[in-house]
Nucleic acid binder design. Structure first.
Lengths: 210, 210
DNA sequence: ATTAGAAATGAATTGTTATTCAAAAAATGA
DNA sequence: TCATTTTTTGAATAACAATTCATTTCTAAT
């Protein structure tokens, strides 16, 4: 463990920063990036508008910081899980559970993330957005590696690992999205078996053994 | 066939409208809704800015009109295909082929659509957005019905048809997205077998027959 | 060729909001 | 307590872009 050499000042600064980030999360989730104003966020966090700029250079930096930090969090969780050695199928199950659990605990964030994931608007133009996009890609590659090992171990069919990864996250995101918009709140976890069943075993009913 | 009772005037009006829509498609696809200005679109279409307002009440109406018309187009194609009677698996294959083909022929549009699909920003606030959202939902229900029939016919596993539909579109969208951002242009159709293989048969390698 | 009416135009209007910054408040410490 | 430094503040600035509308350009019938 790093010895934490931070004085009160530093600590308070960071606390305020967190405060702003989590208020921003709430507001962005509710209204989206463009309809959210800096003064919305300031009000939610009970700071003056100008104060936000002591902590973040711009609205966009605030936005992408928010996203980046959460993506890193989930990436680390997944990476930790993957350091355990078990079968690939077991890994996929664990990752999915982790994912769903994380989503349930971060509903607001995922309203932002899911919208962001497929946005072309800035991956091109904006350096901030580019970093975020790279982290998303890194996540896919992490999964592709699991798929790759699974293929080598003959657990998975010999398909392109990237294709498998894309298929997997596509399905997962689809269920996450549905859960996010659903009025009646069922636990997302309740879909875990369904997702696994379809991803691993497919939709087609097996022929009666002949 | 409806006898077409439209004079030149009407025809020109509609032609101009199309012109604007297709220019808008190009610009929105490149820069996203918020970064696109009405004068961008006007320039692309070689009209004055004010002229656009003779055809569409607002920027948002223009945007959603664009999306709605294309969604209806694909919805009709799929519906036509589904009126054929074959097995459910066959139907899924056909629909997927149709989809991929349509995407390839409407690359610009799908950059917009994919971004739009998961956006919360207006489903709530905006009436225009609401209509679009409903069309997307209708599409899912169309698929769910296919799944449902497949289940009844013992072609598919007895899972929730909606879950199957979500899993399917999730995978499809994921591949579409990848294709959209890919620099090197492979034909999207080349992924058709992979998608079918995974959706129908799953990722898991079957046990050696015991 | 003239003119009434239709259509197109783009400069001016209006509203919005990110960002700045001079002033006020709070914290510090002598 | 009071002077100094740090932090917060929110009104003022500045930029931008959707929409409007008075004017111009085009159309077609006489």
């Amino acid at each position: 463990m790093e010895a934490q050499r931070i004085g009160r000042k530093e600590r308070e600064y960071l606390a305020h920063r967190e405060e702003i980030l989590s208020s921003a999360e709430k507001v962005f989730a509710a209204k989206g990036f463009f309809s959210t104003t800096m003064s919305d966020i300031a009000q939610e966090a009970e700071f003056g508008t100008g104060t936000l700029y002591k902590y973040f250079k711009s609205k966009e930096e605030l936005y992408f910081t928010l996203i980046d930090e959460k993506i890193e969090e989930i990436n680390h969780l997944v990476q930790a899980e993957l350091s355990q050695k078990t079968s690939s199928i077991e890994r996929i199950k664990k990752v999915l559970g982790l994912q769903f659990d994380f989503v349930e605990r971060n509903r607001d964030f995922f309203r932002i993330y899911i919208s962001e994931r497929n946005r072309f608007e800035w991956t091109i133009k904006d350096d901030l957005g580019k970093g975020t996009h790279e982290k998303m890609v890194a996540y896919i590659h992490l999964l592709a590696e699991v798929m790759n090992q699974g293929i080598k171990a003959k657990e998975f069919k010999p398909l392109d690992p990237m294709d498998l990864a894309h298929a997997f996250v596509g399905m997962v995101n689809s269920f996450v999205f549905e859960w996010l918009i659903s009025r009646d709140t069922y636990p997302l976890i309740s879909k875990l078996d369904t997702v696994l069943e379809i991803f691993l075993g497919g939709a087609k009913r097996m022929e009666r053994r002949r």
